[in-house]
Simulated assay, not measured.
Amino acid sequence: MDAAYVETAEGVFLASPLTRGPWHPDHQHAGPPSALICRAVERAAAADGFGHLGRLTVNLLRPAPIGACRVEAAHDYVGRTAGHYSGRLIAQGKEIARFTALAQREEAVPIPEGTPGHPPPQAPKPWRQSPAATMAVISTHAFGYAELVENRVAEGTMFRGPSAVWFRMAHPLVAGETPSPYQRVAVAADSGNGISASLGFDRFMFVNCDLTINLFRRPVGEWICLEARSLFGGNGCGLAESALFDEEGVIGQATQSLAVRAR
C-alpha cells in the first residue's frame, strides 16, 4: 500500500508494512500510530476551535501489531484558550497506547524586535545541504518505516551518538490524505532514540515507553529535523531528547523514556 494506513471505517485503520519497526517484524514503529493519535486530536480540537497542538503525550503500553487498530479521542476540558484531550489506541482487543494532549487557540501576538532568543535558532544545516541516508541498515528484517520516511543527516552520524537528522514522509499517513504538519512531526519524533543510538543494535534494545512532543508554533513545510541525544543511567533506564526544527527554525522538543536491555 502507498500509505501507512487505510481507514476502513471511522476511526478504524489497517496498518501497512510501511509501519513496520526495527525491533520485531510483527510490530509497528511507534511513530506512525503516534501520528494517527495526533490526527484524532487535531480533529477533536478543530471542532472546539483550537488550531495549534501544543503538547502530545503517548504512553506506549504494548507494541502495536501490524494489522487493524482503532483510535478513540475524548474531550476532557475545553476552555477559552486551551483544550485538553485524552484517548487510547486499541488493537486485537487490547489497549496499545493511552494519550493526553493540549490544543491551543492561536492569536496574532507579534514578538518585539530585540527580544532575547528571537528569532529562534536554526537547524544545524538545511536539508538541501544535508547528505541522504537510510535507516534500513539497523534492522535484520524488512523495516517498512525506513521506506515511509526519507532522511538527510545535518550533523553527526546516524546510530553513532548525538546527531541531527531531517525527516520527510515519502508516503501518506492515511491513504487519500495529505499529512498535516503535526502528523509529520509525530512520525519523526519517535525516532530520537534511534538516530542518536550509541549502544549497538546487535547487543542492546533501547525501546521507548512513551513519547512527549511539545510545540510552541505550527510547523511549516514537509521536512522536520531532530537534533537528538540519548542518555543512559546504567540502571536499565534512559532518556532520549530531541530538539525539533522545520525549515524556519526550532519549533519545540520531544522526549522519550527508554527501557534499556541486553539482547
Score class of each variant (00 low, 15 high):
Gln104His: 06
Gln104Trp: 05
Gln104Tyr: 09
Arg105Asn: 04
Arg105Gln: 08
Arg105Gly: 08
Arg105Asp: 03
Arg105Glu: 05
Glu106Ala: 12
Glu106Met: 09
Glu106Asp: 10
Glu107Ile: 02
Glu107Ala: 10
Glu107Gln: 10
Glu107Phe: 05
Glu107Trp: 02
Ala108Arg: 12
Ala108His: 13
Ala108Cys: 07
Val109Asn: 03
Pro110Lys: 03
Pro110Arg: 05
Ile111Gln: 05
Ile111Arg: 02
Pro112His: 06
Glu113Ile: 10
Glu113Met: 09
Glu113Leu: 11
Glu113Asp: 11
Glu113Tyr: 10
Glu113Arg: 13
Gly114Arg: 11
Gly114Cys: 07
Thr115Glu: 06
Thr115Met: 03
Pro116Ile: 11
Pro116Cys: 13
Gly117Phe: 13
Gly117Arg: 07
Gly117Asp: 11
Pro119Cys: 06
Pro119Asn: 08
Pro119Thr: 08
Pro120Glu: 14
Pro121Glu: 13
Pro121Asn: 13
Gln122His: 09
Ala123Tyr: 05
Ala123Ser: 12
Ala123Lys: 05
Ala123Cys: 06
Pro124Ala: 06
Pro124Asp: 02
Pro124Tyr: 00
Lys125Gly: 06
Lys125Ala: 15
Lys125His: 11
Lys125Glu: 14
Pro126Phe: 01
Trp127Met: 02
Trp127Val: 06
Arg128His: 12
Arg128Asp: 07
Arg128Val: 12
Arg128Gly: 04
Gln129Met: 13
Gln129Trp: 08
Gln129Val: 02
Gln129Asn: 10
Gln129Ser: 10
Ser130Thr: 01
Ser130Asn: 02
Ser130Cys: 02
Ser130Ile: 01
Pro131Asn: 09
Pro131Gln: 12
Pro131Trp: 11
Pro131Leu: 12
Pro131Lys: 09
Pro131Glu: 07
Ala132Asn: 01
Ala132Gly: 03
Ala132Pro: 00
Ala132Thr: 09
Ala132Met: 07
Ala132His: 06
Ala132Lys: 07
Ala132Tyr: 05
Ala133Tyr: 15
Ala133Gln: 15
Ala133His: 15
Thr134Glu: 01
Thr134Val: 00
Met135Ser: 02
Met135Glu: 07
Met135Ala: 08
Met135Thr: 07
Ala136Leu: 00
Ala136Thr: 02
Val137His: 09
Val137Tyr: 01
Ile138His: 08
Ile138Ala: 12
Ser139Lys: 04
Ser139Ile: 03
Ser139Asp: 03
Ser139Met: 03
Ser139Gly: 01
Thr140Gly: 11
Thr140Val: 08
His141Trp: 09
His141Cys: 04
His141Phe: 12
His141Ala: 08
Ala142Met: 13
Ala142Arg: 15
Ala142Gln: 15
